[in-house]
Write a protein that binds this DNA or RNA. Structure first.
Length: 201
DNA sequence: CAGAAGATGGGCT
DNA sequence: GCCCATCTTCTGG
């Protein structure tokens, strides 16, 4: 699909990512799901971003690339996946925090070692999809094992504060987290499922 | 049952 | 030492 929507405003790109389908084909197994929760990280101006004030390290080097790249970092032994937006001078991106499982659920259960909470958190969904930092950091969407395609449309998008950044001063207050209203496959909050899990059609 | 608390953990500076 | 998380256990209603 056309990825140019990742090139411009990162907040808009984040909202447009909701409902898109992520498909991975890793270790010969196909898994997929629809994006239900994302967070935008705005680089230079954003105290919660890895690239705040254009900080550049071996770890976040990937953010200084053209839109469409995949940035994977590790946290407490878990992998977190971001899609890079903008261009090489603007290290911005969108953290994928949760998806609604679609295909390959048996594979997800196998990889996770449990049958519940497969994809309702940034470290969980990467484990279910088989995404690893050493193999997939620096790859590009639709040019490798990680594919992005059209999926579903959220009825309504909820804006909220980002998770896990309580020591980032004013950045804590930014409403840069976006979730599909009525979809239970999200991190932290327990959501009562609405009709069609909050998707149109 | 929900929410809080504690342990765990890897890659970087 | 710092950090965009998860799981298990403990607590209280």
């Amino acid at each position: 699909m056309d990825l140019t929507f990742l090139k411009d405003d990162t907040l808009l790109a984040a909202k447009n990512l909701l409902g898109k389908k992520i498909t991975t084909e890793i270790d010969g197994k196909l898994t997929s799901g629809y994006i239900t929760e994302v967070e935008a990280y705005l680089g230079e101006q954003d105290k919660a971003a890895h690239a705040y004030q254009l900080r550049r390290t071996k770890k976040n080097e990937m953010m200084y690339r053209e839109y469409g790249g995949v940035y994977v970092y590790t946290m407490h032994g878990h992998h977190c996946m971001n899609f890079i937006t903008r261009d090489a001078t603007m290290p911005e991106g969108v953290l994928i925090r949760a998806i609604e499982p679609e295909e390959g659920i048996d594979t997800m259960i196998e990889r996770r070692g449990r049958a519940v909470n497969l994809t309702d958190g940034p470290g969980k969904l990467t484990q279910s999809l088989g995404v690893k930092r050493d193999l997939h950091n620096g790859t590009r969407l639709n040019e490798g094992p990680i594919q992005l395609s059209e999926g579903r449309m959220p009825v309504q998008i909820i804006e909220s504060k980002r998770i896990g950044i309580d020591n980032k001063e004013e950045a804590v207050e930014y409403l840069y987290r976006f979730t599909v209203k009525g979809n239970p496959y999200v991190s932290k909050d327990r959501v009562k499922p609405e009709e069609k899990n909050g998707w149109k059609a």
